[in-house]
Design a protein around this nucleic acid. Structure first.
Lengths: 235, 235
DNA sequence: ACAAAAGTGTTAGAAGTACACCCATGT
DNA sequence: ACATGGGTGTACTTCTAACACTTTTGT
């Protein structure tokens, strides 16, 4: 004897982070809702999954609708599917459920062009000063933020959003803006990273304003491959 | 212009682990399917989500239908929702999708009673010698196994499946059956755990066969509370 | 007496932490 | 010359891994 199955509409919501290293700000992309429910409020960019479309494809599509970006990291975050998380459920007598599979993304700030479609507003907010969000999106954001910190510490996501050639300082800025002020000091970060042997020293130097020229490095994917799934620590 | 939304049936599949420390075996619970598709093949225990039921509730229900257990740890694992993962999709012209939210559980082996309902078979398999699974369940199992190892190393899940009073050897057996042979040696494991200060030394001793009596410890939840979300290492 | 299980100690090396200091460039 | 950012070195502590050893029980 089985009771009635729930009917579902499945959506994807993205927590899209970006790091503005110049201004030392960790940003998250929010959109302002145009329609009921929560019209006028800010929320994570999301979409409903289409016929024949994979979840990940839906996540990429949402992302591509809001920003134009070439370099990013994306992975599934968590699925929120309890009853009562979307007011639209109440519409239908037998309450179709709105399930949200959330994805977490990190994109390169420099080449992320926001797409302004008509009157819908899309905007970066610093994570620590963003408005209360529609639905349960504040919770999703918090969850995503925790994941971002972990990912940065234990896997090489940073290299997905850095330019191909970067200085150790670029890398350090990225880490310290995300991980906050009580992050490791530069000198130790430096030696730890170099000791890992996954950074290729291109002999090139780059001069940015005053100061000694900085060495340009690149991420050495081949050297990293054997270290994959090993408990690497980048902290 | 939006294309057709996918329609979904949402299911929950559980990767239920248990550790038989006596026989040094890591076990996973499988059920033998009775009906099409994959009739006769083994799969993870799962269910479809009912009206008004949360995902987690569905996961608990599935678990309770197969085994009777009081002590367990359960958390969401991953969501698999691509098109084509369930042959039943092909039935309906407009292909209702079968989405699976997977959960991962660790249960206490000693008090886990398998529930044999009629002819449906439920059985423990050692993780390293289990049959090929229906659907994409082999992938889900692999994913769950990885998560189990991580959880054990970084969070105190072990104490959810150990009895309230346990010896350090009980704990060590649990860890080494899950984490395999090249796990830390007993002496180092011991001092690391004790140094964390989260084990309460009840002055009681227990004698099991020959050998010096072992001290009974209990997990000190209050002492652990402040260490929560800190990067603890139990390895 | 001896095996078996529990528990302690030691040591060499690696890794982490907090600094002080030197180097190359622009102004 | 000196401020600025890049880069090196060091002294100290803590962690890790491997292993030898002592203690308390049953037989």
């Amino acid at each position: 004897m089985t009771s009635a199955l729930a009917e579902f509409v499945v959506g994807v919501d993205n927590v899209i982070f970006s790091v503005d290293t110049d201004a030392n700000r960790l940003l998250v992309l929010l959109v302002q809702r145009q329609h009921w429910p929560f019209a006028g409020e800010w929320s994570l960019p999301g979409t409903l999954v289409r016929h024949g479309e994979s979840l990940e494809a839906a996540a990429y599509r949402t992302l591509a609708e809001k920003i134009c970006v070439n370099n990013l990291y994306l992975e599934q975050l968590y699925t929120f599917g309890g009853p009562g998380r979307d007011p639209r459920e109440a519409d239908t007598a037998y309450g179709t459920r709105y399930l949200s599979v959330s994805y977490f993304a990190l994109v390169r700030f420099a080449d992320a062009q926001l797409i302004a479609t008509g009157e819908s507003r899309v905007q970066w907010f610093t994570v620590h000063s963003c408005p209360p969000l529609a639905f349960d999106h504040s919770m999703i954001l918090a969850y995503g933020h925790r994941r971002l910190c972990n990912k940065l510490e234990y896997s090489p996501v940073a290299f997905d959003v850095l330019p191909e050639y970067f200085t150790l300082n670029d890398l350090y800025q990225l880490y310290s803006t995300v991980l906050g002020p009580n992050f490791s000091d530069y000198s130790n970060f430096r030696s730890r990273l170099l000791k890992l042997g996954i950074l290729q020293d291109t002999q090139q130097k780059v001069i940015r304003g005053a100061g000694r020229p900085a060495t340009l490095y690149r991420f050495d994917r081949e050297a990293f491959a054997p270290l994959k799934d090993k408990p690497l620590v980048f902290v």
